[in-house]
């Protein structure tokens, strides 16, 4: 659960970015008029927008459908009683969402658990953003702060967040606050490290340009350092958000009565594998949807740089 991939990822994006020429940029072609802007015209012969989109959805759906089919046949062929069929999981998901089938403690309880988990995930994630981004900007830009904090961060980073579990239970007790703390820790490192990397990879001439135009101090951070580091920051946010959902399950396995992690834990104790898989699928969907939202914000904020679009 180390955040090293985060750095590799940003580095790959940045080197990739250097290869992208303005000519590859489609919005320019619509209003280009002068001779110079002929350079900017997008490549011709593009396929219509809709079929490409439909094709993409079909391609994306084909693989999971094939997996579900394979899952079904493996269960039927082996005759195992330990793993439910996709249909049984589907029934469980319906009951978990709307009730009326099993009528047990879990029937129709999806909102309670989902909202509890979301609160903790987004709470910890938001806390990591609020602390991680300003800290990353300062470590990246101010030499003294970097010299003071970077070694400590490098020392703490390799410690798996799950190893903090016992201490976190001592600090925050058996309950949701402990889960929020773990989510915070897991989301914090990718955000800080990618923010630092984002600042460090900005062309130093941009800071020189800003200072000669009369921008300095806190205005420099707000108007230049932060927006310039945005590609790195969003890399960190997407990774951190993934870690947040991973850690919520660990966090909620510590005796919290609600949350998707606790549902999975209960399913295990009760040998209700259909419930376990239901919890897994719902986490997957929630994580996927939040990631889409982050990508949407990313594309809006980084609309100036098509190669940073998710």
């Amino acid at each position: 659960m180390s955040a090293i991939p985060a750095e590799l990822n940003s580095a790959a994006r940045l080197t990739g970015a250097a290869d992208v020429t303005p000519a590859a940029d489609p919005p320019a072609s619509s209003t280009a008029t002068s001779t110079e802007s002929v350079l900017l015209a997008g490549a011709g012969g593009r396929k219509p927008w809709l079929p490409e989109r439909v094709q993409a959805v079909l391609l994306a759906a084909a693989f999971p459908i094939a997996l579900v089919v394979l899952w079904h046949y493996l269960v039927v062929v082996t005759g195992t009683k330990l793993v439910p069929t996709p249909y049984q999981v589907g029934v469980m998901m319906w009951d978990f969402s709307f009730g009326g089938i099993h009528d047990d403690a879990f029937s129709g309880s999806i909102l309670t658990h989902l909202l509890a988990s979301m609160q903790r995930v987004y709470g910890g994630f938001a806390l990591a953003i609020v602390i991680g981004i300003p800290l990353g900007l300062m470590i990246g830009k101010v030499r003294v702060i970097r010299q003071m904090l970077d070694p400590t961060l490098s020392l703490l980073r390799p410690i798996p967040v799950t190893a903090w579990l016992p201490l976190s239970m001592i600090f925050f007790g058996l309950g949701p606050r402990s889960a929020v703390f773990l989510v915070f820790l897991g989301a914090f490192y990718p955000i800080v490290l990618n923010t630092i990397f984002g600042v460090r990879s900005v062309d130093p001439r941009l800071f020189e340009a800003a200072s000669m135009l009369g921008c300095d101090g806190s205005r420099m951070f707000r108007q230049v350092v932060l927006p310039a580091a945005m590609p790195g920051i969003f890399n960190g946010l997407r990774l951190a958000h993934g870690f947040a959902w991973i850690l919520i399950v660990v966090g909620e396995m510590t005796g919290v009565p609600t949350g998707l992690g606790s549902v999975i834990m209960d399913g295990r104790t009760l040998s209700r594998t259909d419930l376990v898989i239901t919890g897994m699928i719902i986490i997957g969907i929630a994580g996927f949807l939040t990631d889409r939202i982050i990508v949407g914000i990313n594309n809006r904020i980084l609309r100036w740089s098509p190669q940073h679009h998710g």
Binding site: D203, R205, L206, E208, A209, A210, S211, M212, L213, G214, V224, P227, A228, M230, L302, W304, S305
Partner: peptide, 20 residues
């Protein structure tokens, strides 16, 4: 003693703010 708005530099590689 330092950069100031009475002097303006035009760099070979432009140094425009790409997000603006």
């Amino acid at each position: 003693t330092g950069p100031g708005s009475d002097r303006g530099m035009v760099f070979q590689d432009y140094a425009l703010f790409p997000w603006m």
